[in-house]
Amino acid sequence: MGMQGDFFQLLKEQGYQFGNPVAAAAGIEVPTATTILALKYRDGVLVAGDRRATAGNMVMYDRTDKVLEIDRYSVMAIAGVPATAYEMVRVLEHSFKYYRRTQLQELSFEGKLRAVSKLLKENVPAALAGTGAVVPVFAGYDHEQGAAKIYFYDILGAEFEAVEYAVSGSGSPTIRGILHYQNTWGPQPLAALPEEQATVQALRLLSSAAEFDSATGGVNRELNLYPVVKLITEAGVRVVADGELKRLYEQDVVRAR
């Protein structure tokens, strides 16, 4: 019992159910919409997300953190219904810790990916009912292969590895094109960008997304609100501080008039 270190199984034995569909979902405005992105840069992977949560045309909250650390080496950026997404992160966080602490070794990177897919699969009924769709981007450092990696998913749990970058959320169509353009014809491919330039790119991309998508929050300088930017390298996950984002924004994102 419990010898396999599977926390999700343990929860189920305790009567826990993940992702219950609600039959009468029609007509309920569920908060969704967002822009998240992950790109490979010189030292690893950068994951960023805007901070707006909306329900229909209502702005619910402007300080959401959609780039959630699951453990020291992986983050999940979420687009979709936050309630489900946060619950997923909680399950994953406890599952990875429980595995590490019982088995006395880290869950492999493949194992972590599998855990994400499994939860999304459990969530299919809720996703189809319209109350719980989540479209995450998962990024982490694979110690086995010595590389940071990005994966994106559809709402049914299918997993795709992104070679250079991945985007999700309602603002993503805007920046997908920019990413392709930058990566192909920019001064250098994204994978060659040093940390600071990659962060500048992320700020510019999210500002562009906010320009064309009402559900994406950009930068609010009066309130000192900047997107969330996290960097994953061999040393683990690091959050780019607001002060640093502010400096880069003022230096390289605002056009001098």
Binding site: G2, L10, L11, R90, V91, H94
Partner: peptide, 13 residues
């Protein structure tokens, strides 16, 4: 140890 881990993680979750 296993029973402690189980208890701690269920409670923490």
């Amino acid at each position: 140890r296993f029973s402690l881990l189980e208890m701690a993680h269920i409670e923490g979750f």
